Amino acid sequence: MPDARWDHWGGSVIGPLHVRTGLPNQDAWMARRYRWGSVVVVSDGLGSKPNSDVGSKAACLAVFEAARSFAGNQRADLEDVLRLIHAHWLVKIAPFFPSDCSATCLFAMLIDGTVTLGRLGDGMIAVQGASEGDSCILSDDKEQSFSNYTSSLHHEFRPRQWETATIDSARCEAVVLCTDGISDDLLPEMRMPFAQELCRNYAAMDPDERRQDLRRWLGGWPVPGHSDDKTIACLFKRGVAR
């Protein structure tokens, strides 16, 4: 049976640029609870690709498929799990071409007492640990980058482009995942405080109230000139928000 203490929330809003141009939200997020654990995933379809909204939704579904297989055999190598995500993604985007559906992929899998994290491409994963030493951020440092290239799911599987981590669920209080429409507007030193404040504010809320407040907050994003879609999701342990 899954650990009943764990829950999730999330939301996504279309960016002003896509509203003006009549394009769909190219972000996606999904979360599911299984008898063996929970999975939360967010994905950002690359804006230059014509079917990136298809790619981001397929990325979420592909992670669920791979997580089910991983739960059935946790002795599997994590690289093989990433390869399985890629394979399921290729199947789920058909009949579209991979080059037209490229998307990032960020996930958290809670399976049998272990939280497994994966990040491919832009966006951020913030782990709120039971202590400061257990907390960490998985994200790109764009200030140090000399390229506009974004790693993503595409026709070729490239395991070295993935960043992964694991943490004992007893040492983890929450995992926040967001696309770069949110993370790029945060100063590096503010990313963890931002994630902690969100967890603290939303942990005890009624789900309907939380959903409405989250959409209001994302829709009124306070950064001047923002244009991108915005998606955020959280896997959290009830009763431990600080």
Rank of each mutant, 00 (worst) to 15 (best):
S102W: 01
A31K: 00
T114I: 14
S38C: 05
C178T: 05
K237C: 11
A203L: 13
S99N: 05
L82D: 08
P222H: 15
L153F: 00
L90H: 08
A195F: 03
I167L: 12
D134V: 00
S227C: 07
T104Q: 02
L138R: 02
E209H: 15
L218F: 10
L23H: 10
A31E: 00
I93M: 01
V41H: 00
A62L: 03
A59W: 02
H155D: 13
R242T: 13
V54T: 04
D185P: 05
R160E: 15
M192C: 07
P159A: 15
S147C: 09
K49R: 14
S69K: 10
T104N: 03
V81A: 09
W217S: 12
D213L: 14
M1S: 15
R119G: 02
Y202R: 15
G225A: 13
G225T: 13
V223L: 12
V39S: 04
W217C: 13
K92P: 00
E163Y: 09
L110N: 12
F107T: 01
L214R: 14
C172T: 03
D168S: 12
E143D: 11
A62P: 01
H18D: 10
V39E: 03
D134P: 01
H155E: 15
V40K: 00
K230V: 02
K237A: 07
T116D: 03
V240Q: 08
S152Y: 01
I182V: 15
Y202K: 12
F70C: 02
G123F: 11
R68G: 08
G123W: 10
S99Q: 11
Q26D: 02
G11D: 08
R216V: 10
D44I: 01
A174S: 11
F96G: 02
L82I: 08
E189R: 11
A28G: 00
E173W: 13
L218A: 12
S38A: 14
L90D: 06
V91Q: 15
L23Y: 08
G129E: 01
V81Q: 11
S52C: 05
Q128N: 14
